[in-house]
Computed example of a mutant assay.
Amino acid sequence: MFHRDGFAVFAISLMIYDVTEAPCSRDEFECAKSRKCIKRDQVRNKLWNCGANDTSDEDKPLARCHPRSEFRCRGNGMCVPRDWINREVYLCADGSDDGGIRGFPCIQGDEFRCPTGRCIPRSKVVDGFKDCPHGGADEMAESILQCDVTKEYRCANGRCIPREWVNNGLRDCVDGNDESILMTCNDNEVTCGGRCFPRYTGCGG
């Protein structure tokens, strides 16, 4: 620090680092100019999400949509999460993700098909919230599923939740009994603090 005429003048040294930005994840889109990472469903949604002077998110659709988790809009090619299909609140500008898409496949063993054709995760069936449009068929007694004991725990009301959710500190069953039981792990699982995790992931889940 130097003093001159009663004013303090600071000598500041600037160091410039060559910073390499981390690549965008599989579930993100990398903007061409700004290098910003945005969600895949923000591409071709009629909004410039990449920032000023970067329209790369609206110039062209993604090369491909993830077949197990996304649906491609017929008009502009936008990839929308499959959870929004047949939800009666459409994301596609042309509404092609709504209106009862015939033959849209739900993932067997992982999802439940609503009468409208919407696919929801099995864990949302009889969870206390109506996820199916027009009456909430997922909350009706006849919709109760047969739980897969190798990967699911059955709540008293019939809800099937992933076995990893048991004793995780959160009440996933309506009566909370998933937080007060002693789990017996399967041969393909490991015991970690009263919880069961797949053996291939270990206690980290």
Score class of each variant (00 low, 15 high):
Arg44Asp: 08
Arg44Glu: 08
Arg44Ser: 13
Leu47Lys: 04
Leu47Val: 08
Leu47Phe: 02
Trp48Gly: 01
Asn49Cys: 04
Cys50Ala: 06
Cys50Glu: 05
Gly51Lys: 06
Asn53Tyr: 13
Thr55Val: 11
Ser56Gln: 00
Asp59Arg: 01
Lys60Tyr: 03
Leu62His: 00
Leu62Ala: 03
Leu62Cys: 03
Ala63Ser: 08
Ala63Tyr: 08
Cys65Asn: 02
Cys65Arg: 03
Cys65Gln: 02
Cys65Phe: 04
Pro67His: 01
Arg68Ala: 01
Glu70Phe: 03
Glu70Cys: 02
Phe71Lys: 14
Cys73Pro: 14
Cys73Tyr: 08
Cys73Lys: 09
Arg74Met: 11
Gly75Thr: 12
Gly75Lys: 15
Asn76Gly: 11
Asn76Trp: 09
Gly77Cys: 08
Gly77Ile: 14
Gly77Glu: 07
Met78His: 13
Cys79Ala: 05
Cys79Glu: 03
Cys79Lys: 01
Val80Pro: 10
Pro81Asp: 08
Pro81Leu: 08
Pro81Glu: 06
Arg82Asp: 11
Asp83Val: 10
Asp83Asn: 11
Asp83Cys: 13
Asp83Ile: 09
Trp84Lys: 10
Ile85Tyr: 10
Asn86Met: 14
Arg87Ile: 15
Arg87Ser: 10
Glu88Cys: 15
Val89Lys: 14
Val89Gln: 14
Val89Ile: 13
Tyr90Pro: 11
Tyr90Gln: 15
Tyr90Ala: 13
Leu91Ala: 08
Leu91Ser: 07
Cys92Gln: 12
Ala93Lys: 11
Asp94His: 14
Asp94Val: 13
Asp94Phe: 11
Ser96Val: 12
Asp97Tyr: 14
Asp98His: 11
Gly99Met: 11
Gly100Pro: 13
Gly100Phe: 10
Gly100Gln: 12
Arg102Pro: 07
Phe104Gly: 06
Cys106Arg: 00
Cys106Val: 08
Ile107Tyr: 00
Gln108Ser: 05
Gln108Phe: 04
Gly109Phe: 00
Asp110Tyr: 02
Glu111Thr: 04
Phe112Val: 02
Phe112Glu: 03
Cys114Asp: 04
Cys114Ala: 06
Cys114Phe: 03
Pro115Gly: 07
Thr116Lys: 06
Gly117His: 07
Gly117Gln: 08
Arg122Ile: 15
Lys124Leu: 09
Val125Cys: 06
Val125Glu: 05
Val126His: 00
Gly128Tyr: 01
Gly128Ser: 05
Phe129His: 11
Phe129Tyr: 09
Phe129Met: 12
Cys132Arg: 00
Pro133Glu: 14
His134Thr: 07
Gly135Ala: 06
Gly136Asn: 02
Ala137Cys: 01
Ala137Pro: 00
Ala137Arg: 00
Asp138Val: 05
Asp138Thr: 03
Glu139Asp: 01
Glu139Pro: 01
Met140Tyr: 00
Ala141Thr: 06
Ala141Ser: 03
Glu142His: 05
Glu142Asp: 08
Ser143Thr: 01
Ser143Met: 04
Ile144Tyr: 00
Leu145His: 06
Cys147Lys: 12
Asp148Arg: 07
Asp148Thr: 02
Val149Met: 13
Val149His: 15
Val149Gly: 09
Val149Arg: 10
Thr150Met: 13
Thr150Ile: 15
Lys151Asp: 11
Glu152Gly: 09
